[in-house]
Nucleic acid binder design. Sequence first.
DNA 1: AGGAGATTGTAACAATTGTTACTTTCTGTT
DNA 2: AACAGAAAGTAACAATTGTTACAATCTCCT
Lengths: 211, 211
Amino acid sequence: MSKESFRKNYSYIFEEELLQEIESLAVYKEFKENDIIIDIDNYIVSIPLVLEGAIKILRQDNQGNEIILYFIERGDTCAMTLSCCMGQTKSKIRAVAETDTSLFMIPKQKMKEWLTKYNTWQEFILQSYHGRMQEFLEALDTLAFLNMDMRLLKYLRDKAMVIGNDELTTTHKEIAEDLHTSRVVISRLLKGLEKDNKISLNRNQIKVIDL
Amino acid sequence: MSKESFRKNYSYIFEEELLQEIESLAVYKEFKENDIIIDIDNYIVSIPLVLEGAIKILRQDNQGNEIILYFIERGDTCAMTLSCCMGQTKSKIRAVAETDTSLFMIPKQKMKEWLTKYNTWQEFILQSYHGRMQEFLEALDTLAFLNMDMRLLKYLRDKAMVIGNDELTTTHKEIAEDLHTSRVVISRLLKGLEKDNKISLNRNQIKVIDL
DNA sequence: AGGAGATTGTAACAATTGTTACTTTCTGTT
DNA sequence: AACAGAAAGTAACAATTGTTACAATCTCCT
């Protein structure tokens, strides 16, 4: 965990001049697993660049219903945040550290300024939007076309992927909250997946076999 | 239906120089109701600006399942298309004319070129992404948190809104396809909405009372 | 007028998901 | 060891959505 990992992840993306400007401006921040990085209705004042770790992005609607959208990893930024910068609005999403995480926070005025100034920044922003659109489409497909058992399996696989470990430390309750269903439903479906040899179950731990 | 409506919808958005450049470059196209404007797997070679009419944007996954994402109207562009321009990929969506529609098609290379050249273009592109993100979130909320009856009502209201008419000319079958369910389910739920005085039903026609 | 095809209505049943209530098992603390 | 609280198992039932099959009605075409 250190700001040195910035160069590791971004030096081949940004031109040297921009790298230096970021290093001189950005505020370095660290978060522990399960820390809330951005919460619903927070005002967005800066753009995050993920240096290390993985972040879970959740949507919460007006009634307080919550559901996972996707995970983001190092090298990513949060296009939802960019979008909120544009609209001068409050955050519509919650970002929770899935693992220990380090970030660079960049003042949001720089977003537009750099668009004309640095070609690599322009490319990065457009690619970010593109990537997030893809994630959104995938999230939509999942919700629209998959039954809960397959949504669950996809969730477990995605989670194993971003933390780089096929053994997940989590509870049925937490999963139920992320998928916006009830704990009983998740327990039932997990049993089914175990019987199909896709996962194996232990208290506070799920091992994803069929990755 | 004419290219004159370009100035009507875009003159307050773009600077004069850009307006002229668009007028000299853009290809004018018209579509009739239900025409397919962009289909799945089409290669995207140009950016559409909607001059008149309304367009229905549908998602189709690999298995051929289809579902409506949202409607776009005059003054809009299609951010999914922008996104596809970036990725050099095929279209992941289908765009169908909901009413008679006219468009300006702009060569896709101009997208990036104008980002640095025209401030108003940059603003437009960022706002487009922002707007489409909002639409995506709304679509996600709808799928994640609403039962089919409320999804149906929302669909009917949205449709009435974009065509500017509370009397919809459509069939239960078409609705079922847009919402990715079966005709029988839609017929059943429509009956329920009629009983609750939210709509009134006739063959090939639904009137939205509770707008 | 008659018939083909599209549209809508209806019923019966299956599958999936949600809800409630209660039990059992595990873990950490005192 | 005893206890409290979290985690997970289980069963019974309700609500929602999906499926199949068939009937009734309307529209257009010749």
